[in-house]
Write a protein that binds this DNA or RNA. Structure first.
Lengths: 199, 199
DNA sequence: ACATATAAGAAACTTTGGTATCTTATTTAT
DNA sequence: ATAAATAAGATACCAAAGTTTCTTATATGT
């Protein structure tokens, strides 16, 4: 038996093994979606033992989230600048739903609610030890708006800055499709009034 | 053996059995909270078989919700009338958190996220076939406000009417305690601007 | 090079949600 | 009264999350 065939003798460790697991997890997630995603199947595909997964990720939803962060579609880092707060928000949220649609929103079903069992909502859009992409995008959009005189960012509390994320998650958790109309309603009826409120 | 001792011969049915199960479920929920609440234990305490539970409730979270609706603290049906929209909202939400605190908010942990897997958020505060208590209370408060000239209810969409519920659920799902300060922030920074926005 | 620490691998196990099957008590209609 | 329909009860079962235990390969420090 040649050395290369002796798979059972070649143990991967550290990053190598981690990458293999995440890669298998991402493949499985694409194929079957979160609900049918099982730890045993990921382990099998990665030729790893189940405890290997649990030594790194405390639970299934955590592994799935890591795989999405590593291999999933990335949020476009460029912030729109359409000339108005409303336009920027509309453009930004439409980018966001496009990403979800690209991957297939139904593939995520169950993941968000599972994640919410162990992490607060404002960490949902953040990789570990990194900041909340969504919220920082909103902050940049609001700073642009302030330059135009549309808002006064000194009046905006953390709670208000988290509101777009909360509303977006709320739509994603619900089974309905997030359409452009829904986005427009959220922006016109809720976000703009809140951001432009006078204290 | 007297007839009354022959428990194994006396089969309860329909409402009798259902009540016994809900009662056992409520007791267990009070004792151990939702996370440690198991279907097997409820069945055991109710002297019922597990399939009896699943014939009536499709899943654990549904049984727990039914027990809370039947035996849990009830929302005070009287709508506050303090003379201002802000006062009414503050009073109402403080009533709401008092109910949660009375029962012990930590007892609910996990229930909301489980419920959200099968029902939309706007049904969370509604008994089956009945309307959303929280939302109808908000509507009444807003009608009072309209009489005072504080808002124009014709401008308020369903999405806006659901916002208080969404924000409240969001706080309940997060692990933080919902304090009076949090309530005041939500009302001042979000709800009032949204309700009083001019279209 | 060798001892020691670390973590992979294998496999069995525990717990719980949820289902399926079968028997039999109770209800309901005739 | 009796037959047929209904649903309770008992029990075994399945699937999957997560854990435990033990062996052994690899890495690391001396």
């Amino acid at each position: 038996m040649s050395k290369s065939e002796e798979k059972h003798q070649t143990r991967r460790r550290g990053a190598d093994l981690e990458d293999a697991v995440l890669s298998a997890a991402w493949d499985l997630l694409k194929e079957v979606g979160y609900q049918e995603f099982t730890m045993a199947e990921v382990a099998k595909r990665a030729n790893a033992a189940k405890p290997v997964l649990y030594r790194r990720w405390p639970e299934k939803s955590s592994l799935a989230a890591s795989a999405i962060i590593k291999f999933g579609p990335k949020l476009d880092a460029t912030i729109p600048d359409t000339g108005s707060l409303r336009g920027d928000l509309v453009t930004f949220f439409n980018q966001l739903i496009k990403i979800f649609d690209m991957f297939g929103a139904e593939k995520f079903r169950g993941l968000v609610t599972d994640r919410l069992k162990s992490i607060p909502i404002e960490k949902l859009f953040a990789a570990p030890n990194s900041d909340n992409m969504l919220q920082s995008a909103i902050e940049q959009i609001l700073e642009q708006a302030e330059k135009r005189g549309e808002v006064d960012t000194s009046k905006l509390s953390p709670r208000v800055l988290q509101l777009p994320g909360v509303l977006f998650i709320n739509e994603v958790v619900g089974q309905a499709v997030v359409t452009k109309q829904v986005i427009a309603q959220i922006i016109d009826e809720i976000l703009i009034p809140v951001f432009t409120a006078k204290k």
